[in-house]
Amino acid sequence: MKLKKFALIISVLAVSAMSCDSLKDNDSSSLNTTLDETSSDLISSALEAQDYTDNISEDMMESSTASSSSSFRTTSDSEDDVQRRPFRPGARRFFARHHADCADITITNENDTRTVVMDFSNGLCENREGETISGVVTSTHTFGESSMAHSTTFQDFSRNDNTVNGTSSITGENVVFEEVVEEGKKPKIASATLTKTTNVTIDHPATEDVAAYTETIVRSLQEEVDNGTKTVTGTLTVTSTGENSGFTSEITSALVFSPRCSGERPVFVALQGTEVITRGDDTITVDYGSGECDYIITITTADGTEKVVDLSEGYDYYGFIGVRGGLKVRREN
């Protein structure tokens, strides 16, 4: 199953920009075949669903520092801002805060909790692709001395007739924030125990080629953060009324994301750990390696066949951009 190109909002595997030594250009010569269609579709669907829910969390965390509609705006006439958070043709990311200047916004503060309501139902919001935005997005944000909580709820949130309902949330215990915080930026977590949950339903309209269908994404993660390194366990389930019946993904060996890599290009996938992805009778095991700073994974099918795959073409400097033309398999020596 491939989620439609409906990009909403971003973490969870909450992956920060982690630089690493990328593969050399001539490494592409070691790729000679494509992964079988079933395995390629499973891993592509899982990556897209993960990126989708990660975007929700990113937007949630960024909006926690907003005190007015202008605070949501992360693009401006500044070239630096445009480079940092660009709008790109075909990009999957969609951030509600980018369109806050055309929404009706209500912000309330009570004790340590801030509630932000972005109401797009006034009919004034249209993105750069000409897609109409409507519905209501409500976020709540709470910070304590050693705790935090964020939640975002979508009420008939619609972009180009794709409608989202549901909630995504993050809670943190034993939270230690970094001492230095840039003005206007969200506080960064140095260490914490985080619980992240997403339960959203997406209604997709009919097209010339596909009948209308509904997808539900349920994700539950437990994350330990220690000086930037993230250790993640949990599950992801996608159900669909469409042609494909969805899939499940379970982290069977904790995924580890680390900022220790250095280089010009960030790495957004796990550096180690395994997960099992299943749809019906089809199952693959994805091994992210043993800590190397690269995009190389090993996929094992149910019959024991192993394929080494390079995921780097599915990402750019800003994150996941999707898999096109199938995943390439590295040539065996």
Rank of each mutant, 00 (worst) to 15 (best):
R92V: 02
D282W: 02
R114H: 06
T201L: 00
D282K: 07
S151A: 15
T300I: 08
E182P: 13
S67L: 03
A17M: 11
K5N: 09
I296Y: 00
V286H: 04
S16T: 09
V308E: 13
P187Q: 05
K230W: 10
M18W: 05
S312R: 13
E313K: 14
M61K: 05
D161N: 01
V116W: 02
R330S: 07
E208S: 13
G273Q: 10
P259Q: 10
A254I: 11
L271Y: 03
T152V: 12
S146V: 14
M118F: 00
K196L: 12
F143I: 00
V323F: 15
L194M: 12
I299D: 01
E173V: 06
Q272C: 03
P86M: 11
D27A: 13
L311G: 06
G280P: 09
V238D: 04
T106P: 05
N122F: 08
Q83D: 15
M148G: 07
A96P: 10
A212S: 02
I9S: 10
K328S: 14
A103E: 02
V323D: 03
D21T: 10
K186E: 14
T235A: 11
Y288G: 11
N55W: 03
D36P: 12
M118N: 04
T75V: 10
D21W: 00
D41Q: 09
R159N: 02
A66F: 07
A149I: 02
G326I: 08
L35M: 07
I299F: 01
R73D: 10
F154P: 01
T33N: 04
E182H: 11
F268N: 04
N165Q: 03
E131G: 04
V225D: 01
V12Q: 08
C293N: 07
A100H: 05
N160T: 01
Q222W: 02
E58R: 10
G325E: 13
G130C: 08
F120D: 00
R265I: 13
D156E: 01
D281W: 00
S147W: 00
S28M: 04
S262G: 15
G314N: 09
L31E: 13
D27G: 04
V12D: 11
S191Y: 05
N162I: 01
S76L: 07
D316F: 05
A14D: 11
M60E: 08
T115K: 07
Y52Q: 11
S45A: 15
D77I: 06
G325N: 14
P266K: 06
G322A: 09
D310R: 06
T142M: 08
L3S: 03
S44E: 12
G228M: 09
R279N: 14
K185N: 13
S30I: 05
V175F: 07
T301Q: 06
T283I: 02
E37S: 10
V117A: 04
R97M: 11
H150Y: 15
Y317F: 14
R114A: 02
T53D: 05
S258F: 13
T113K: 15
F320W: 15
S40M: 06
E223W: 06
L3K: 01
S57Y: 11
A206P: 06
T237K: 14
G184E: 05
F268S: 03
T239G: 06
I170E: 08
R93W: 11
N127M: 04
A302K: 08
E37I: 09
A211C: 03
D282N: 13
R73P: 01
N55P: 03
S290R: 10
D21K: 09
